Simulated assay, not measured.
Amino acid sequence: MTDYDVLRVFCGPGGGYGNELGVVRDGSVIPERGDRQAMAAKLGFSETVFVDDPERGVIDIYTPTLRLPFAGYPCVGAAWLLDVPELVTPAGVVGARLDGEFSWIEARAEWVPPRTLRQYATAAEVEALDVPPPGEWIYAWAWEDEAGGRVRARGFPGRGDGIEEDEATGAAALLLTDRLGRALNITQGAGSQILTAPQPGGWVEVGGRVFLER
């Protein structure tokens, strides 16, 4: 098996939770897309990143079943691991920075694959949801504190690839921030934390804590 790291991205304040991310630091060892897809399927993480140029931040992102031009939590994790000012993805150049305990990226909503943002009346309703059948990608959310920008969310990819629920989803958080036009403090899944902030010119910053698991 090719060497890879496992990060947890968007961890909670105590360092727990977060979404596991596989990162192959030397993408040259698996140059073919088909082989990368097969490895991503075998690893079984929500997403796996192949680093094609660590100095320039060139990365390639896969779910267990498809290649993604852009994805939020893989970019946040890669930005932390590579410590570069930008990442180069097929969708475009992603700004990157580290600020204390948080790793941040800056990206655009139009880079995000389709998501259904479904608002509920209360956080308790979101927490009580059952996993929906495969179909559309659903980001279920509700205000915990609208004045304070605090949101409760859960992400259901609906792909039928064994990932029934995403513990933390930066791309969907980016879409929600773009739609609402305000900074958000999102608790997703079992306890992951995602911070966001709209920026001038249609950009959105997404940030969170990253830890090296193994």
Results as ranks from 00 to 15, higher is better:
F10Q: 15
C11G: 14
G12V: 08
P13S: 11
E20Y: 04
V23D: 08
R25A: 12
R25P: 01
D26T: 12
V29W: 01
D35S: 14
F45C: 06
S46D: 09
E47F: 11
T48H: 04
F50Q: 06
D52A: 02
D53E: 11
E55Q: 14
I61Y: 06
L68K: 06
P69W: 12
G72H: 09
Y73R: 15
V76G: 13
L81V: 12
L82E: 04
L82G: 05
E86A: 10
T89S: 00
G92I: 14
V93I: 14
R97G: 02
E101M: 01
W104V: 09
W104H: 01
W104M: 02
R108G: 09
P114D: 13
P114W: 13
T116K: 14
Q119G: 02
A123Q: 03
E127Q: 12
E127N: 09
D130L: 11
P133R: 04
W137Q: 11
E144H: 03
E146F: 03
A147P: 01
A147H: 09
R154F: 14
G160W: 15
E165N: 09
E167L: 06
T169R: 12
G170K: 00
L175M: 00
T177R: 05
G181Q: 04
G181E: 02
N185H: 14
Q188E: 15
L195V: 02
L195M: 10
L212M: 10
R214E: 10
